[in-house]
Amino acid sequence: MTSTFEQEINQKQRFQFGENWNRFLTVLNDERISEAEKSLKQMLEMKDLQGKTFLDIGSGSGLFSLAARRLGAKVHSLDYDPESVACTQELKKRYFPDDCSWNIEEASVLNPDYLQSLGKFDVVYSWGVLHHTGAMWNALGNVSGVVNEGGKLFISIYNDVGGSSRRWRLIKHTYNRLPNSLKFIVLWPSFIRLWAPTTIRDLLKGQPFYTWNTYYTSTRGMSPWWDVVDWVGGYPFEVAKPEEIFDFYRQRGYRLEKLNTCAGGHGCNEFVFTKI
């Protein structure tokens, strides 16, 4: 029987993030893992996660589940994409084989019954995921119910840039509908659009490819090339203004603790809320 995920892929309605994450694992190293750990500690304002429970919704490569586990948390990872689940399982196998404090499941954040069955967590983390579900506001509501009182919710959501966001949505949809042999028609012009200004700026400063080579230090250990593929292919695609996210969670009993915006650009705004 074909799964809902497979049906969406076959209908060209969803990007296969897991394939991208699988390639990312080929460049993952200790330095990138350390950057991921550092970003968690900075945003959560914690020196470690000893004694905490950590829910990673949309675990992707598994990098941040791994980072949380290395920081001492008891981790539960879930992802809708079977290949992303496999990536997370691969990292557990590499770094925490046979560890009973790290569980991994294939599941959807749009299934509220499943989420409720997990109980509540001290930290719920979902970076760059909920806007790809096809039902972002439902997903945002579902995650609000699995945070312990006094616990933290760390999410990131694509910024709403008006007409430009709508154009990118069309580009992403087009990319996913093309056969693999023709995806370069969308990918390479997008890559040039995204990286040419920065590359030229680095050259003028006498530091060729400086931003490219140091990208992982400012992006939670990520890879510049695979982030471009993730951005261009990332569909379904929804966006929100920071104030919309703030109001949504304030009405559900959350207090905003930390906010990092993308300065009005196309990237993600990061939010850390506390359940009060």
Rank of each mutant, 00 (worst) to 15 (best):
23 R>Q: 14
24 F>H: 02
24 F>N: 12
25 L>A: 10
26 T>E: 09
26 T>M: 01
28 L>C: 14
28 L>H: 04
29 N>D: 15
30 D>R: 15
32 R>E: 00
34 S>G: 07
34 S>P: 04
35 E>L: 04
35 E>P: 04
35 E>G: 09
35 E>Q: 12
35 E>W: 06
36 A>D: 01
37 E>L: 00
40 L>P: 14
40 L>T: 09
41 K>R: 09
42 Q>W: 13
42 Q>P: 09
42 Q>S: 04
43 M>P: 02
43 M>A: 06
43 M>L: 03
43 M>Y: 01
44 L>K: 04
45 E>M: 10
46 M>H: 14
46 M>N: 12
48 D>S: 14
48 D>E: 13
49 L>F: 11
49 L>A: 10
50 Q>K: 14
51 G>T: 09
51 G>K: 09
51 G>F: 03
52 K>I: 01
52 K>T: 15
52 K>A: 15
55 L>Q: 11
55 L>P: 14
55 L>G: 13
56 D>V: 01
57 I>D: 15
57 I>A: 08
59 S>T: 15
59 S>F: 06
60 G>Y: 12
60 G>R: 10
60 G>E: 06
60 G>A: 04
63 L>Y: 00
63 L>V: 15
63 L>M: 11
64 F>S: 14
66 L>T: 15
66 L>F: 03
67 A>D: 08
69 R>P: 11
69 R>S: 08
69 R>D: 15
70 R>N: 10
72 G>V: 02
75 V>C: 05
75 V>P: 10
75 V>M: 02
76 H>G: 06
76 H>C: 00
76 H>S: 01
77 S>R: 00
81 D>A: 11
82 P>W: 06
83 E>V: 10
83 E>A: 06
86 A>E: 10
87 C>N: 03
89 Q>I: 08
90 E>W: 01
90 E>V: 08
91 L>N: 02
92 K>S: 02
94 R>L: 08
94 R>S: 08
94 R>Y: 02
95 Y>E: 03
96 F>R: 05
96 F>K: 05
96 F>P: 02
97 P>L: 03
97 P>G: 08
98 D>N: 11
99 D>L: 00
100 C>Q: 14
100 C>E: 14
101 S>K: 10
102 W>G: 00
102 W>E: 09
102 W>Y: 09
104 I>R: 04
104 I>K: 04
104 I>C: 09
104 I>Q: 06
105 E>D: 13
105 E>A: 13
106 E>I: 06
107 A>R: 09
108 S>V: 12
108 S>Y: 13
108 S>A: 07
109 V>G: 14
109 V>F: 08
109 V>P: 11
